[in-house]
Design a protein around this nucleic acid. Structure first.
Length: 595
RNA sequence: GGGGACGUGGUGUAGCUUGGUUAACACGCUGCCCUGUCAAGGCAGAGACCGCGGGUUCAAAUCCCGUCGUCCCCGCCA
């Protein structure tokens, strides 16, 4: 590394560098004045180095004494070993220090709005307002660096495999992706609007028709929906598409990429990822994105209770419902209060109730125990291999709903019992999502994921007879309970694509209006193709041990989609509105309150 | 659209239930002392009218209403 003056980064020096004359540039992290000797820790994005200013050089010492927190310093000196017994094992540079021979104060700084140590205690609001200071913190610098590293690994990996990065438009037209669009008014075309893309979906499929063959893009996507810890109005995805490909091409490609990223991060990620159909994952875990670091598989106990005297169960079974059960090892320690909270969780998920049991001294302890025969209880314990100290939970409902309810109980138990994950990372594929779901209130079908997904070849005749029961080539990648990527094999034949859109309630005119650019392109020699998009922010957050993607985004927005740093969104002046042929119909009162 | 939590010096909090002298504590900041600290230490000091607006009251950080903002969740969203 070469710099004009700077010779090293602050996190770089080690005992091997002892004796070198160096120049460091950075911020004064802390200054400790002992009257006779002055320690200044210099910080840059790579770390900290302790520098020492001794009193012999009076002028130098006088300069050093004036240095306050966050002053910007260029410091020349000699690397030397710390005196015996004074090494700091907690710092990578803790074996050495730089004895200063010259200091230039490049800039002063106001007292920072919060402390920059590792023990930050400050609200996110303040951090975002002073993001430029916040990003100087070692953790944030490391997060941004990690983000950069992952991005470069992705590009290198895909470049090596003949993928081409192509930019798709940010100013585009409103697409029916499902979410609300961000709109941009046109100046030259009065009354018309661009939309910011919710994903480059249609453009990347068109690139396949164009013969680009293998496309990727670290693409920004925009959705005007309410925010969450893992959702921002603009976010980044690694978007890719490949021609002449199916699941067996996409999955190994992605597994290889994930493996390379995790290896580089010193993390162990077993590949290939297990594959589970949507049907299976729902039955076994009651969720389409279960955290498989934990066991806790649901069991179907409909058979056990098919002739039970417990009316709640028997009536559900008679009407084709199911009884799903979950055994929690060590769950017998849960208190009555815990059981009540779990019941609440079940009810929130739509359950009428939750049957819970503690297994103790070979017996079953439960308010519901009296409704079951000893034979039923014995069969239940056998089915679940329940031992003393375990707890059993059961819900009965229409089969999919019973699973979903128990899926919520499963999640609740993982946190409530503070279960330890069996391994640090667990990734898997969910395959074969249903193609369509019926929307009774709108009397039409809707795509469960994405309207461009191909149906299973052998089920295509069902499009005419029973489209609600069709599987599809839609897949998700789930990592530690986070839906990390989603993709599908697409419809490359316009006939099938049009038929599916027809089922979704679009006539030919509406298809032209909303999907015309894609469907028409499919008519001109579209190759079979498949693709996927990874939630890049989510991936980096997981790798950084963060629960909020805001921690890995340089300038994120608040839950009301505002940017405390820039003040966006904000009013614009009347002149700008006139150019755009817009008038704010809001009352003066509302506008007045904003200012 | 709905539910919950929070808002008090620069920062993080206590005080609020049960209204009543100079609003407390820690960190930071300022000054002085100190030659081996690294979340330095010692002494001294400055700094908030308690998010904003209104109401109740002799009296409001504290009670009530409204409003704004932040965070979490449901809906929504992949």
């Amino acid at each position: 590394m070469t710099f004009m003056k700077r010779t090293h980064y602050c996190g770089q020096l080690r005992t091997e560098d002892i004796g070198k004359t160096v120049t460091l540039c950075g911020w004064a992290h802390s200054a400790r004045n002992h009257g006779g000797v002055l320690f200044i820790d210099l910080r840059d994005r790579t770390g900290l180095t302790q520098t020492v200013i001794e009193p012999e050089n009076k002028e130098l010492f006088a300069t050093g004494e004036k240095i306050k927190g966050e002053y910007v310093i260029e410091l020349r000196g000699t690397v030397r070993a710390r005196p015996a017994g004074y090494a700091n094992g907690a710092m990578p540079t803790g074996g050495i220090e730089v004895a200063a021979s010259g200091i230039t104060v490049l800039n002063e700084s106001k007292t920072p709005p919060f402390e920059l140590g590792e023990h930050v205690n400050v609200t996110e609001e303040i951090r975002l307002k002073y993001r430029y200071v916040d990003l100087r913190r070692q953790k944030m610098a490391a997060n941004l660096m990690r983000r950069h590293t992952v991005a470069q690994l992705m590009r290198a990996y895909l470049n090596k495999r003949e993928f081409m990065e192509v930019e798709t438009p940010i100013l585009t037209r409103s697409t029916p992706e499902g979410a609300r669009d961000y709109l941009v008014p046109s100046r030259v075309s009065a009354g018309n609007f661009y939309a910011l893309p919710q994903s480059p979906q249609m453009f990347k499929q068109i690139l396949m028709v164009s013969g680009i063959d293998r496309y990727y893009q670290l693409a920004r996507a925009f959705r005007d929906e309410d925010l969450r810890a893992d959702r921002q109005p603009e976010f980044t995805q690694l978007d890719l598409e490949m021609s002449f490909a199916k699941e067996d091409d996409v999955f190994p490609l992605m597994e290889g990429l994930m493996k390379e990223i995790f290896d580089a991060m010193g993390q162990e990620l077993p590949v290939p990822f297990p594959r589970m159909t949507y049907q299976t994952v729902m039955e076994k875990y009651g969720s389409d994105k279960p955290d498989l670091r934990y066991g806790l598989e649901l069991a179907d106990c409909t058979d056990v209770f098919k002739s039970t005297g417990f009316k709640v169960f028997s009536s559900v079974v008679e009407t084709g419902g199911a009884i799903r059960a979950l055994k929690a090892e060590g769950g017998a320690k849960l208190t009555r209060g815990d059981m009540d909270k779990l019941t609440e969780t079940a009810k929130k998920a739509g359950a009428k109730g939750l049957v819970w049991m503690r297994v103790k001294d070979g017996a079953v302890e439960s308010p519901a125990a009296k409704f079951f025969t000893p034979e039923e209880l014995a069969a239940l314990k056998t089915k679940l291999s329940a031992k003393d100290g375990d707890a059993i939970f059961m819900a009965s409902d229409e089969p999919m709903k019973a699973s979903l309810i128990m899926g919520e109980i499963r999640k609740d138990l993982i946190t409530r019992l503070e279960l330890k994950p069996a391994r640090p990372w667990a990734a898997f594929w969910v395959t074969n999502f249903p193609l369509l779901e019926w929307r009774p209130e709108e009397k039409r079908y809707d795509a469960t994921h994405n309207p461009f997904t191909a149906p299973l070849e052998e089920e295509i005749p069902l499009l005419d007879t029973n489209p609600g029961n069709m599987g599809s080539h839609q897949y998700d990648m789930v990592l530690n309970g986070v839906e990390l990527a989603s993709g599908s094999v697409r419809n490359h034949r316009s006939g099938i694509q049009r038929k599916i859109m027809g089922l979704m309630g679009y006539n030919e005119e509406a298809i032209q209006e909303r999907f015309g650019m894609l469907v028409n392109a499919l008519d001109y020699g579209a190759p079979p193709h498949a693709g996927i998009a990874i939630g890049f922010d989510r991936l980096v957050a997981l790798l950084s041990g963060e629960t909020s993607i805001r921690e890995v985004i340089a300038f994120p927005k608040t839950t009301t989609a505002a940017c405390p740093l820039s003040g966006a969104p904000d009013r614009v002046d009347t002149r700008q509105l006139e150019d755009l042929h817009l008038r704010i119909v809001e009352t003066e009162k509302v506008l007045g309150e904003k200012n």
